[in-house]
Structures are given as structure tokens and as C-alpha cells.
């Protein structure tokens, strides 16, 4: 199949970016979207042109590194990661516009590569349970209702790709942050630090410059791992209760 690609090219964080159009004539529909980019880049190098920089690693939908905004949707037309999207989802002759995630808290590094270290910093603010290695109780000492363990897993399935931020008109990170807060709030191990965690992670989220939640649910619709907005409601609860009842003045 033939494809016309409009790709955002930007030399560096400071540089001004623009769209460049590329024509690909021999695209197989069995190719993954990233393999189509491999072909493009191979052609570009052959022609002596700078290949398109893009983030990717595991290419099996779990590392969360790939991050392309394809035809107006994060990760493209399917609710999956960019690496799991295949060309059979597109029509012969179609024009595909590819942009980086756009958010103030995700500055562009080059072309389609953005800096998501803000997500790491939010977790450093409290996304952990303070236990040292060794000296912990036997794993079966604490019984956890299956329902709670499953709900915690559902939240923990987040791959930190940032599609929620990319999809949100406010560039809000609440789906991501709420998934992290929820995982620990649902488990008995997370209780001792529960209140401080919610307060600190939300404070860091705000400090990074993410927007507020308008409950448009666009994040949930685009999340490749199906993280539910129920988590956002839980985070809100956790945060209000913590602010009103914790000892942190």
C-alpha cells in the first residue's frame, strides 16, 4: 500500500518545528506502525537525510516507551500502544499525520521524542511503600481480599506512556497519578503512608504543570491498558480526606 506521512520534525527542544511530508510506496499491511517508520528511516539515511527520532523499546506493548500522536489520537485509531498498531488499520493512499505528545510538562527533545521525566518525579514524591530489603513479614501473613488485589492490579497495569496526558485537552496527568495512588490505597501495605502519599503526589503533579481534570474521559478512552477513571474519583477522595484529616499542616 501507499502512504503519505506528515511527520513533526523538530531539531531540538529550542528549535522551531514543522511538518514534513514523506511518501512511502511499499508499505505492507502486516507491518507494525513502528516498522513502517523503520522503513522510512532506512530510506532517509540512504538519501543522506536525518532520520526521524522516536521513542520505542520493547515493541510488545508493555514498556510504555512508544508515544506517537497519530491522526489526532494518542497511539492512533486503536486503543493500544503505537508499537502494537499495524498498517492494516489504515487504507491504501491514506495520509497519516504523526505528532509528538504535546504538553508543557512533556517538553519535546527531538522530533517525536518527548521528556516524560515529570512522571518519574511524581512517583519519587511518594509512589512507594517505605520498606527496606529484608526483615519483612512472610508473604502470606497479610491476607488481601482477591477483589482488592485485582483492583490494585488493574491500577498497577499502567505503563506510564503518557497517552492520558496527550489525549486530555488540559494535559492533565490525573489518570496516571490516580492509578498510582489507587494501587497503594487499595492494599493494606499502603495504609501507613496513605494520606501523605496522596498529598505529596498531587502536589508534585501540580508543580510539574499538568492541568486539572475536566472529566471528559478522553484519557480512559485512549488508555492502552484500560485504566479506569474510577481511579480519579478515588484519588479525589483520598486527597480531600487526607487534606482535611492528616497531621500535615
Amino acid at each position: 500500500m501507499k502512504i503519505t506521512l506528515k511527520v513533526w520534525r523538530q531539531k531540538s527542544k529550542e528549535a522551531k518545528g514543522e511538518f514534513k511530508t514523506y511518501q512511502l510506496d511499499h508499505v505492507s499491511q502486516d507491518m507494525s506502525f513502528l516498522e513502517m517508520f523503520d522503513v522510512l528511516n532506512n530510506d532517509l539515511v540512504k538519501k543522506g537525510e536525518d532520520p526521524v527520532a522516536f521513542d520505542h523499546d520493547c515493541r510488545e506493548g508493555i514498556c510504555g516507551m512508544c508515544s506517537m500522536y497519530i491522526n489526532g489520537r494518542p497511539h492512533g485509531p486503536l486503543q493500544t500502544t503505537t508499537c502494537q498498531l499495524h498498517m492494516r488499520s489504515f487504507k491504501d493512499g491514506q495520509t497519516i499525520t504523526v505528532e509528538p505528545w504535546r504538553a508543557k510538562a512533556f517538553p519535546i527533545i527531538k522530533d517525536l521524542v518527548v521528556d516524560r521525566s515529570s512522571f518519574d518525579r511524581i512517583q519519587q514524591a511518594g509512589g512507594y511503600i517505605s520498606v527496606n530489603t529484608g526483615g519483612v513479614p512472610d508473604a502470606n501473613e497479610i491476607a488481601i481480599p482477591k477483589k482488592d488485589a485485582d483492583a490494585a492490579f488493574d491500577a498497577a497495569a499502567c505503563i506510564q506512556c503518557g497517552a492520558c496526558v496527550a489525549a486530555c485537552k488540559n494535559s492533565s496527568a490525573m489518570l496516571f497519578v490516580s492509578a498510582k495512588i489507587s494501587q497503594y490505597a487499595l492494599l493494606p501495605q499502603g495504609q501507613p503512608e496513605r494520606k501523605t502519599r496522596a498529598e505529596n503526589m498531587v502536589a508534585q503533579m501540580d508543580a510539574e504543570g499538568f492541568g486539572a481534570c475536566s472529566n471528559t474521559l478522553a484519557c480512559e478512552a485512549e488508555c492502552p491498558k484500560g485504566i479506569s477513571v474510577t481511579n480519579i474519583a478515588r484519588m479525589n477522595r483520598e486527597y480531600y480526606v487526607s487534606k482535611l484529616s492528616s497531621d500535615n499542616v
Partner: peptide
């Protein structure tokens, strides 16, 4: 055996049975 204890203490959501054990 220590690894499992450590991971559970960190909040790793391993699969559980209805009784709540791993």
C-alpha cells in the same frame, strides 16, 4: 522465598485466591 516476601511488602499485586492468600 525471601523475594516473594519482599515484593508483597512493596505492594506488588500478585494473584490471590478468594481466601486472600497468594
Amino acid at each position: 522465598v525471601d523475594i516473594i516476601d519482599q515484593c508483597v511488602a512493596q505492594g506488588v499485586p500478585f494473584a490471590r485466591e478468594y481466601g486472600g492468600l497468594l
